[in-house]
Design a protein around this nucleic acid. Structure first.
Lengths: 239, 239
DNA sequence: CAGTGGTCTAGACCACAAA
DNA sequence: TTGTGGTCTAGACCACTGC
């Protein structure tokens, strides 16, 4: 057995919701029934169902059962840790990524603060633009610690840095903090983006942490106003 | 005993992180130690620690322990389900809420779609503006189903609809979906807000669901560009 | 090696919903 | 009353960390 049991059950159940075995609005089998079906304990089933609930697939109702939620209606990126590539895959229009800059730098004070590192640390600085249907509307500025990512190439940046880090290097991203504001556009925005008459950009600042709780990437994603969209699915944990 | 044991432990531990008993960067006692201290089973301790981890207080490290994260740096609203009142309590400036409209309506097609209700359903329509330091910068439009909220008064709307619903009516809000976009301002925005020269607003659409998975509130919160800020803390559940 | 967190089990009792 | 999900227990074995 390669995977955790509860994860396997989680995946089998999501499959059944996608292929229509379980329809939105219906109840799935009870925890006891599932425990019997999968020949496991109820706590293990509960772990799988908790995951389903946290990811918006079901809603547990005490005394009644677990109802399947309508996920088709929303197609929300589940809980916001979504890379550009994943997003692009979901869309139709023609999308291109241009690597504008790729170099090693020493951080100035602003970056030292954002990345909580010293001025001696070497940093990868990657600037990319994203074009939808020929218009450059997103400017992505990534800063990564050299000590964790020894090598970075233009090719990798054109694909997905994220995928490279996780799949090739085997580094696991654990959590991220996002901050969204709207700010006047800078000279840099005007240089790289097709700003039209817009004089503001939506700035998404992303702080990415690893499994060992160390901060390792700071990303600034700057979007032209009219092309920005963010979806979030928030579930209550604490009463 | 009024509360769940794991919730009591969760709260005691958050206390210790706030009052400095546990410092950021340090390890908290191991699960076995905590189980002994609190005279409970390890699984119950694990439930409390899982909550702490999901809410950004600690990071669990296999083989090592659980380290306390630095929450002071961010002061993020935990996972995005934050009412205006909670936010206001955290800020310093003078803040006022004005109830501009409060009435019962029948939904037009757009609202029928957003709330998934029929045209015969009665709806509360509440329009409020929020002023920071004398400037009206947020326009909140709330739509609630009459059948769930029989009575609504100007007083309640001036305080917190959210608090009224949860505390007075005993209805529990379970989860919410958020959508953030930037849109040209409408005539309504100009009428109610001090728009200055801004011709766009940040629109946050909120779909609020109850414990029984029924949609019950649709809220549109419209912010002047320069006063908008959103913070999100996303943790990875699925591998 | 000992200690950590991650998973899993087979029970138990509870609060709640529906018939 | 029966069946549901929610909580809790006292064990067990595993994978990983650090010494």
């Amino acid at each position: 057995m390669r995977k955790n049991k509860f994860m396997r059950i989680y995946e089998e159940l999501t499959e059944k919701m996608k292929d229509g075995t379980f329809q939105a609005g219906e109840l799935i089998p009870s925890e006891n029934e599932l425990a019997a079906q999968y020949e496991t304990s109820r706590e293990t089933i509960r772990k799988a169902l908790t995951l389903l609930s946290q990811n918006g697939y079901i809603q547990k109702l005490r005394g009644k059962g677990s109802v399947v939620l309508d996920t088709s209606r929303a197609s929300f990126p589940i809980s916001g840790l979504v890379s550009f590539k994943e997003l692009a895959d979901q869309l139709n229009g023609t999308i291109h990524t241009f690597v504008e800059e790729l170099e090693l730098i020493r951080p100035e004070p602003y970056l030292q603060h954002q990345l909580q590192c010293s001025s001696k640390e070497e940093l990868w600085k990657v600037i990319r633009t994203r074009a939808f249907d020929g218009e450059r509307v997103i400017l992505d500025k990534d800063f990564l610690l050299r000590k964790q990512i020894p090598q970075l190439t233009k090719d990798i940046c054109e694909q997905s840095i994220y995928a490279y880090i996780e799949q090739e290097l085997g580094i696991t991203i654990s959590f991220a903090k996002k901050e969204i504001t709207v700010e006047p556009c800078t000279e840099e925005d005007c240089r790289y983006l097709d700003m039209k008459d817009f004089s503001y950009v939506v700035v998404v600042r992303n702080y990415v942490y690893l499994d060992d709780a160390s901060l390792f990437q700071y990303t600034e994603s700057r979007h032209r106003l009219d092309k920005f969209r963010f979806v979030d699915f928030a579930r209550r944990h604490t009463k």
